[in-house]
């Protein structure tokens, strides 16, 4: 009997030490981070009380460059329109009554802003978490679709990544694929920063899981 109590005490002490270590390693998530080790001030729906997020992953921020460039171009087109095509600008600005032109211009800029906003929230809400218990993958696309997939670490069978191409090598991001024995067979973390580190962390966790 006393041995049992001793073991429990040791286990709880070890657990407390592990939690303390994790909390000491916690990093403040700067706004809209795409990779964060032990993030603080972040939580997700159905997160358990003693569940600690070890890794927060989003697509590398560099993947947003195409739409940011497009938004920039769309913003500067109206002032440049008279230079590009005097006939088109004359049609738009002089053939319509001034009130219509005014509304049209405001509407145009609001649509560009909304486009940027939708692209941004699509990037922001496509997020994955690795905790000490499970992997959570949240997919958000086309505004009206979101899917939250969860798998326990014990169900993970294999983790690998691919990093191909000049841009991906330069900015060090790639696709991480997690194969599981669960209902959802694949968890794909696309274009995430530091894929090697992500794979190592998940492999370490699987190792811990199998030894426990």
């Amino acid at each position: 009997m006393p041995d049992i109590f001793t073991t429990e005490k040791n286990t709880s002490t070890a657990s407390k030490t592990q939690t303390d270590t994790v909390l000491k390693k916690s990093a403040h998530v700067h706004h809209f981070a795409s990779f964060c080790d032990h993030p603080r001030e972040v939580s997700f729906q159905n997160q358990e009380a003693n569940e600690i997020i070890l890794l927060l992953l989003r697509r590398h921020f560099i993947t947003n460059v195409p739409w940011i460039t497009l938004v920039f171009l769309l913003f500067i087109i109206p002032p440049l329109l008279p230079l590009l095509s005097s006939e088109l600008s004359a049609f738009l600005f002089f053939s319509l009554p001034s009130a219509f032109t005014q509304i049209f211009l405001i509407f145009y800029y609001l649509v560009v802003l909304t486009f940027a906003l939708v692209e941004f929230i699509t990037w922001y809400f496509n997020i994955s978490f690795v905790t000490q218990k499970r992997v959570v993958d949240i997919d958000f696309s086309d505004l009206l679709y979101h899917d939250v997939a969860v798998t326990k670490l014990s169900l993970i069978e294999d983790v690998n990544y691919t990093q191909t191409g000049f841009i991906r090598s330069l900015f060090n991001y790639g696709d991480v694929f997690v194969q599981t024995a669960g209902e959802k067979l694949h968890f794909d973390f696309l274009a995430v920063p530091n894929p090697t580190k992500v794979v190592n962390i998940i492999q370490d966790l699987i190792g811990k899981g199998s030894h426990a």
Binding site: V29, V42, S43, I121, I138
Partner: peptide, 21 residues
Amino acid sequence: FTFVVFHQTRVMNKVIQETHS
């Protein structure tokens, strides 16, 4: 459409909570 964007953001903010963002 902007209402849909606003609503979806509120829904997703309940799924993922980041204090300031």
